[in-house]
């Protein structure tokens, strides 16, 4: 669960990108953020994994320390958090009781921050792959947070990690491209490499900053279907969308942002013309949609 509390972001040039934003993202949700260009969608997404600093407020994320625990330790931790009286019987649990389940990512530094980022995947509009590296290397780069600097310098990955990367590539249908340079792939394939990288990272949340904005309509649908499949495995997805009909079709919840403020937050089925009026300043015409047929959208 991610809690965004009273977040305000002012850029160094004085532009206020986010004004007192309050949101709670539940585990397993597929949330779309819609709004005009410059409304603050990207800023919001980037503040969550702290690619951008926030000026005020808090962004509470699950404590990354929890994910570093061994399975047994994690079990004990969950038990003692659910029932604090256990710690009185077993003093060794006291340490676990004192570990807060949530931390404010905007206060984290250095290694703690990198641990937090390790648990948050990110997908970009322009894919952001290392163009000259192979697909395989790009996907393996998702494991960077699990290794120290020296291991990365010598390109050391464990056998399990390599298997995980290959399995994720297979899942997204790019396994045959494993040893092809990333810049030789089509846009859709490149975005799948980015998705495979995020999956290999084994994060519980994927942030997607306009993931389909540079793809054609057909590829858009298949990449969005990939997102849905990933979401069904329990990974929370928070995506910026340009097309309202796409957001309505794929996500369970829609957040509308206008001039840095949340003007709509609710189920995607309840997004009516009135709502788009609030978000975009006017109702959207049919020709401003991506053009998915209603019948197709219901399947």
């Amino acid at each position: 669960m991610i809690e965004i509390k009273n977040v305000t972001k002012v850029y160094p040039n004085g532009f206020t990108a986010l004004k007192n934003v309050n949101l709670t993202i539940q585990d397993g949700e597929f949330v779309s953020i819609i709004g005009l260009s410059g409304a603050g969608k990207s800023t919001l997404i980037r503040c969550i994994n702290r690619m951008h600093e926030i000026t005020e407020g808090q962004i509470l994320i699950p404590n990354p320390v929890i994910y570093e625990m061994t399975p047994e330790e994690r079990k004990k931790y969950d038990a003692v958090q659910a029932d604090p009286s256990l710690a009185e019987k077993d003093p060794s649990l006291k340490r676990l009781l004192n570990i807060p389940p949530k931390v404010d990512i905007s206060k984290l530094k250095g290694k703690k921050l990198r641990q937090a980022r390790k648990n948050i995947g990110m997908i970009f509009q322009s894919f952001n792959l290392v163009k000259r590296s192979t697909v395989y290397k790009n996907v393996l780069a998702g494991r960077v947070g699990y290794h120290n600097t020296l291991e990365t310098m010598f390109g050391i990955y464990t056998k399990d990690e390599k298997m995980l990367a290959l399995r994720n590539m297979e899942k997204l249908g790019i396994l045959d491209k494993a040893y092809v340079r990333a810049d030789q792939l089509s846009g859709g394939q490149q975005q799948r490499v980015a998705l495979a990288r995020a999956l290999t990272q084994e994060s519980h949340l994927i942030l997607a900053d306009e993931p389909v904005a540079s793809l054609d309509p057909v590829t858009t649908i298949s990449v969005m279907d990939d997102f849905t499949r990933i979401n069904k495995t329990g990974i929370t997805i928070l995506a910026n969308m340009h097309h309202v009909d796409l957001a309505k079709r794929y996500s369970t919840r829609i957040i509308g942002i206008r001039a840095g403020e949340v003007v709509y937050d609710g189920p995607s089925s309840a997004v009516t013309d009135e709502v788009t009026m609030k978000i975009y300043g006017r109702a959207l015409n049919k020709n401003e949609n991506l053009g998915i047929e209603e019948g197709e959208a219901s399947k």
Partner: peptide, 28 residues
Amino acid sequence: LSPFEAIRSNGGDTIQCIRLSVHPEVQP
């Protein structure tokens, strides 16, 4: 440096980001 940003969002430190995203591009 957009790939650099991507590796940073994966949780890499600066040297890891350089090694994985900038180094392959400048190697030739």
